Computed example of a mutant assay.
Amino acid sequence: MQIDRAVRGTARPPALPSWQARWPGWAVVVWGVLFAVPSFVWALGSTAGARSTVAPDLVRLAVDRVPWFLAVLWITGALKLVGALIGLGLSRPRGVRAGRLLAFCGGGAAVLTGWHGGLFIVHGVLVEAGSVAVAPDLLGLTRWYLYLWGPWFVAGALAFAGATVGYVQGCGPADQRGLRRSGAVGALGALVLSLASTVTGIG
């Protein structure tokens, strides 16, 4: 009996049942890789697509080749690729410890990206409704954040959430409780971080 329990505790989760359960993970991979491209392009010196879709202050930092901002671009690009790797990890069965780490990261990423995109959309809607005023020369930029960046972040959040839930559901019943707990802890931590950054204005 003890040997049986030990084997079950260290066994790999069963294979995910179908492409239907795995496609959200691959959606995260595509999302992360596509999202990383602009960061690397801008870090290399090009401002293609940035002047109309990104805040002017950030574009100026890229044009002036400010070292710390270039470092931020490289780091954010790398983090987006890490997000793609998390999606790849969630698309296939892993060991118990790796699975819990993936569930933690997936839950956290879903909240972080969803919060970020939601703020862009809410702000854009308020501007369009006339409830919030912005400088006339920033109105076009606000619409880019409303119709491009906000939905893009929300799409990433849905992909992360779907990949995490699909991964948990594809694992054995004995492992699902721990995976759900890891995902919930990651999501809660991301929510606290998002609230703190919003209140303090950092991020």
Rank of each mutant, 00 (worst) to 15 (best):
V29W: 03
V63D: 13
G83P: 00
L16D: 08
A135W: 12
W42L: 03
G117C: 02
A43S: 09
A135V: 15
V54F: 06
G99A: 00
L112Y: 10
L58W: 15
P24H: 06
W23A: 09
V54A: 03
V134H: 09
G130L: 09
S131M: 15
G118Q: 05
L126R: 13
P93D: 05
A15D: 15
V96D: 05
G45K: 05
A135L: 15
L119P: 04
F35I: 08
V28H: 02
A27K: 04
V82R: 01
W115M: 07
L34E: 08
L73W: 09
A27S: 10
L85S: 09
G106Y: 00
P93T: 13
T76L: 07
W26E: 04
A110H: 01
V125N: 07
A71F: 12
G32T: 06
L126P: 07
A43R: 07
F35Y: 10
A21F: 14
T53K: 04
G95R: 04
A109M: 11
S18H: 12
P56G: 03
A133T: 15
G99Q: 00
G89F: 02
F120K: 06
A43V: 13
G124R: 01
K80V: 09
L70H: 12
V41I: 13
A27H: 07
P38R: 02
V30N: 06
V122W: 14
V82I: 15
W23K: 08
S131H: 15
T76N: 09
A110E: 01
V82G: 04
V125L: 15
G77N: 03
L119H: 11
G99R: 00
P17Q: 08
L90Q: 02
V30R: 06
D64V: 12
D64N: 13
V111T: 11
V41G: 01
W31L: 04
S18Y: 10
V72Q: 09
W19L: 13
P93A: 08
V127R: 05
A27I: 11
D64P: 07
G25W: 03
S18D: 14
H123V: 15
V122E: 11
V63M: 12
